[in-house]
Amino acid sequence: MFDYKLLAALAAVVEQAGFERAAQRLGLSQSAISQRIKLLEARVGQPVLVRATPPQPTELGRRLLNHVQQVRLLERDLQAQVPQLDEDGLPERLRIAINADSLATWWGSAVGEFCVKHGLLLDLVVEDQDVGLKRMRAGEVAASLCASERPVAGARSVPLGAMRYRAVASPGFIAQHFPGGLTPALLAKAPALVFGPDDQLQHRYLAGHGLAGSFQHHLCPSSDGFLRLAEVGLGWGMVPELQAREQLANGRLQELVADRPIDVPLYWHHWRNGGLLLGALTEHLRQGRWLVALPGLSSDGVNQ
């Protein structure tokens, strides 16, 4: 039978990105955390962590972390039925990987009332929508909102809809770089805005104009900052329609080419044995209508 104090130490080291913060989280000394990890490795007969900065779970470590995530959620269900088992009496904290654009637009409206009703605290890990699932695969989160449809082993994937992005820039930027209208040659020379190294939206837009390869761009890993840089004319970029509606309406931003959006499907991934709370949140998200409907998706959120 697992010693869950050892597994809790492993989870804390990975989630807190180091032994020192893990010790603070669990109220232990750093040496005590280290000893628990060594004892866990001795019992399973192989390493569970790669001692890097930050520490990374091994393949076995990821499997153990996945197990810990699901046990935490199932324990929450049991504590609701037997309150005496909840020694701390603290609200449940759910660790979720989410893309920055969803966090900056529709996510708060979608989950605000749910969290208040269920006494739920969120621990949000921000990742690009194309790579967020890696956090779940590593066992670091209980759920993930990302663009990948295929779930990891032991999880389910639910389509929620699509984030609609539009290629926008300030009127001054467009006048400077596309004085006679947008052409592929001019677009290839105009500086772009890119959220980070995993952001491929601008690449997709350029490919739609027959362009490929490297291009001039600013890196801005902030949704609000990205929008602000576009407004002041530093570059063009793919901005969520939900985020740029006001700027498009008042003319502070304009589309490079009218009505040429890119829709990015978003999928909610959750553990199959995630307990009642995660199941209720999944159902709540599935029934909501915060995103653009996906073609072929029925009203109950199932692919046709």
Rank of each mutant, 00 (worst) to 15 (best):
R137N: 12
G172F: 07
Q216E: 14
Y165F: 13
L193R: 02
H218T: 12
D128Y: 07
G210T: 05
D123N: 15
P221V: 12
R228I: 14
V126W: 09
L160A: 05
L201E: 01
G237L: 01
K134M: 11
Y165C: 02
R137G: 14
G208N: 07
A175T: 09
P159N: 08
C220T: 14
R166Y: 06
D130E: 13
C146M: 06
F226D: 01
P197E: 13
A169I: 02
L227F: 09
P171A: 09
M136Q: 13
G161Y: 00
L186D: 12
Q216Y: 11
R135F: 11
H217D: 05
F195S: 01
R204L: 11
S223F: 05
G235P: 02
A153Y: 12
D224L: 15
S214A: 15
F173E: 00
R164H: 06
G237Y: 00
V168W: 00
L186Y: 07
A175L: 09
A153G: 13
L193Y: 04
A162I: 07
V131A: 10
G233K: 03
S144G: 11
C146Y: 02
M238R: 00
P184D: 04
P151T: 08
F178P: 00
T183A: 06
Q200N: 12
L234A: 09
E127K: 14
P171Y: 06
V125G: 08
L227Y: 06
S157A: 14
G172H: 10
G181F: 07
D198V: 07
L234Y: 08
T183S: 09
H177K: 08
V131Q: 08
P221Y: 11
Q176V: 10
R137Y: 11
H209E: 05
S214E: 15
P191R: 05
L160M: 09
L234G: 05
S157K: 07
A192L: 04
A190R: 01
E231N: 14
D198F: 10
A188M: 05
G213I: 06
C146I: 06
C220I: 15
F173I: 04
G154Y: 06
D199N: 07
G132Q: 03
F173M: 04
V141R: 00
A188E: 03
G161N: 02
D128M: 10
G172K: 11
S222T: 13
A190V: 06
G237S: 09
Q202W: 03
G181C: 08
K134G: 11
E149W: 08
F195V: 03
P221R: 10
V168S: 00
Q176Y: 10
M163Y: 06
Q129V: 15
M163L: 14
C146F: 04
A207R: 10
P171V: 08
V152W: 10
A169S: 04
Y165D: 01
G139Y: 02
V232T: 14
S170K: 02
M238E: 00
V168L: 09
P221C: 14
E231Y: 08
D224G: 15
G161M: 02
G233R: 03
F173H: 01
Y165K: 01
A143L: 07
P184G: 05
Q202N: 13
P179E: 11
D198H: 13
F178L: 04
T183N: 05
Y165R: 00
R164V: 11
F226M: 12
V232E: 13
H218M: 12
G139F: 03
Y205R: 00
L201Y: 02
